[in-house]
Simulated assay, not measured.
Amino acid sequence: MISQPALTVVRDTLPVIGSAIGDITPIFYDRMFTARPDLLRDLFNRGNQAQGEQQKALAGAIAAYASLLVSEDAPNIDAMMSRIANKHASLGITEDQYPIVYEHLFAAIGEVLGDAATPEVVDAWTEAYWDMANTLIAAER
C-alpha cells in the first residue's frame, strides 16, 4: 500500500513523469538490455522491441497504474493488473527480475528528469513501483 505522502507526490508529478515516459522507456530498455542481454534474448519479443511496442506497453501500464492510484473515482484496477500478471506468467517473468527492472527504470528516470528527480519524487515513485510490482508478483505466483 502506498503512503498518503507518496500518493500526493505521485499525483503532483504525474504530468511531468507522464510526459517524459516516452523518453524514459527507451533509455530504460537500453540500459537493462546492455546489462542483461539474456533478458532480451529469453523474454522479450525482438520485433516488438524494434518497433517500440514493448516500450509503449510499459509506458501505458505505468502511467495507467499511477493515474488510477491517485484518482478519487478510479475504476477498479484489478482487471488491468490481471492482464499484466497473466502476460508476465506466460512469458516466465520471475520475482527476481523486478529489482532489475527497478534499477534500470529509476536510473533512466534520473537521467531524463535530472534535478527534477529529487529524493522525494524518487521515493514516492519507488513506492508506486513496488506497490504495482508486489501486486503483480503475488498474482503471478
Rank of each mutant, 00 (worst) to 15 (best):
A6L: 09
T8Q: 15
V9E: 01
V10I: 13
R11W: 07
R11H: 13
D12T: 07
P15H: 04
V16I: 14
I17R: 02
G18A: 06
G18S: 05
G22S: 03
D23P: 08
I24D: 01
I24A: 01
T25F: 09
F28D: 02
F33W: 08
T34F: 06
A35Q: 07
R36V: 12
P37V: 01
D42I: 10
L43M: 04
F44P: 04
G47Q: 10
N48G: 10
N48Q: 12
N48F: 07
G52N: 03
Q55G: 12
L58T: 12
A59N: 06
A61Y: 07
I62H: 06
I62E: 00
A66H: 01
A66T: 05
V70D: 01
S71N: 11
A74N: 00
N76S: 13
I77V: 15
A79F: 07
A79D: 08
M80A: 14
M80Y: 15
M81G: 15
R83C: 05
R83D: 10
A85H: 11
K87G: 09
K87I: 07
A89E: 05
S90E: 15
L91Q: 14
L91M: 13
L91H: 14
G92Y: 00
T94F: 08
E95W: 10
D96M: 12
Q97K: 04
P99K: 00
P99V: 00
I100C: 11
V101R: 05
H104E: 02
H104P: 04
L105E: 07
F106W: 06
A108D: 02
G110H: 02
G110N: 14
E111Q: 12
V112T: 12
L113I: 04
G114I: 07
D115M: 06
A116T: 10
T118D: 01
E120Y: 09
E120F: 08
E120W: 02
V121N: 09
A124C: 13
A128P: 11
Y129K: 02
W130C: 07
W130I: 01
W130Y: 04
D131N: 05
A133L: 08
N134L: 14
N134Y: 10
T135Y: 06
L136H: 09
I137A: 08
R141Y: 10
